[in-house]
Design a protein around this nucleic acid. Structure first.
Lengths: 221, 221
DNA sequence: CCCGGGTTCCACCCGTGGGTCCAGGTGTCG
DNA sequence: CGACACCTGGACCCACGGGTGGAACCCGGG
């Protein structure tokens, strides 16, 4: 999972924050670490995507509140299109919604802005190594959310669903109409309907609303 | 949250694993790091508690499967009686139950045994600094669990919904078609449709599938 | 007293969803 | 090779869902 020495080559890091007063000193202080190269500083999500497209990037240190394209959506796109790039969120906001949204979008770390320089550096290194670093209060909140619901943990779906059918069910669970599902899977709407009919029959699902509930209950969505 | 320099004084670490073949080399290799002192090695939970009672300890690296007193229970007692001691779990098992139990008991990190030396060292440092380090797959599982039963607290619905509209949304969330909702509320289907149109507009809900998701997320269903 | 929000209902339109039947192409396995 | 499962697609039908416009009733408050 990691090499014998901490720094085989410097980590290429992008710093994203809409406030220059935060972004610039942050980039400067991170650059002091020998194993970290701040290769770009962005003021919004588009800047991040541009920087990642321009050259190899290991870790993005991301603020959530940014104009045009916010941190959540940027994280989502990164984990879609550049899964090799790790995202560490650094924000003042640590409410449940933000935490869940960021981690669900694929963030590998979540720090609040009272984290110190060493905390941030450590989180960057961990994220680059495939680990995930959370502030203490963030972990507490995440855990509280988990324990709030005792998890019926249901896999009450029949096992004979084909992979494609599962895939379609997942997208239904996300609320997508058939046309959107068809586009996402690069097939025709007729095919989607076929899959839906088959999986409805197999799983005893009555209609679309029912399918959404089952997909969520099964942890697909 | 942390000091300007990574190691003001060495971290006092206790290694706990029932297998000597794991415990001894682990303790030895961790001691190589300049900022880590392995002050004790324990074969079960009682050994950990003894070591913590004997002298100041910063971090316990804890296996879960141990005789007499297992890692979960030991972690629970530590976070009760010695909340200043951070526990990092290091185990081969990464099933949902173990992860949730360990983190609920107060563990500040959870690594699987394919973590490398650097990963472990990093987790120890982070835990001592009040952060939490999770293996990637552990975070994924934790997140999947959270999303399977989303947010008891989530009331992200607009407040200006009328009682009747809430009621209708709840029934939609249970997968009922309009006719069934009408019968249940002793009104006509036209009335149900009116309520639906109004609440969709207010809450920004696109279609029925979306409504089901929102209802579940809001804890109505 | 009348205004406004909530609830109840009607008629109409039309897009999507759900069901049925069928069929070609692929892959695997006995 | 034939059988079978899976993914793909087209055609058709019709019910349900979602949107619009209107209307009536009750009730509480300005």
């Amino acid at each position: 999972m990691s090499e014998p020495t901490e720094s085989s080559r410097p980590l290429r890091v992008v710093v994203a924050d809409d406030q220059a007063a935060v972004r610039e000193p942050l980039a400067a202080v991170l650059g002091l670490a020998e194993d970290i190269d701040v290769v770009a500083a962005a003021a919004d999500g588009n800047g991040v995507l541009d920087a990642v497209a321009a050259g190899p990037v290991d870790v993005v240190l991301m603020d959530l509140r940014m104009p045009v394209l916010d941190g959540i959506e940027t994280t989502r796109r990164l984990s879609d299109e550049h899964p090799g790039v790790a995202v560490v969120v650094l924000t003042t906001f640590a409410d449940d919604d933000s935490i869940l949204a960021a981690l669900s979008a694929g963030a590998r770390g979540y720090l609040t802005k009272n984290a110190g320089r060493q905390d941030i550096v450590r989180a960057i290194r961990a994220a680059a190594a495939g680990q995930s670093v959370l502030d203490r209060e963030v972990q507490d909140r995440l855990l509280a959310t988990v324990r709030a619901r005792p998890t019926a943990s249901g896999q009450q779906l029949p096992a004979d669903l084909t992979p494609r059918e599962r895939e379609v069910l997942t997208l239904i669970g996300q609320g997508l109409p058939n046309r959107a599902i068809a586009e996402k899977l690069f097939v025709s709407e007729a095919t989607v309907k076929t899959h839906i009919n088959n999986l409805f029959a197999k799983a005893g699902i009555r209609d679309r609303a029912d399918a959404v509930r089952r997909a969520i209950a099964a942890g697909l969505a």
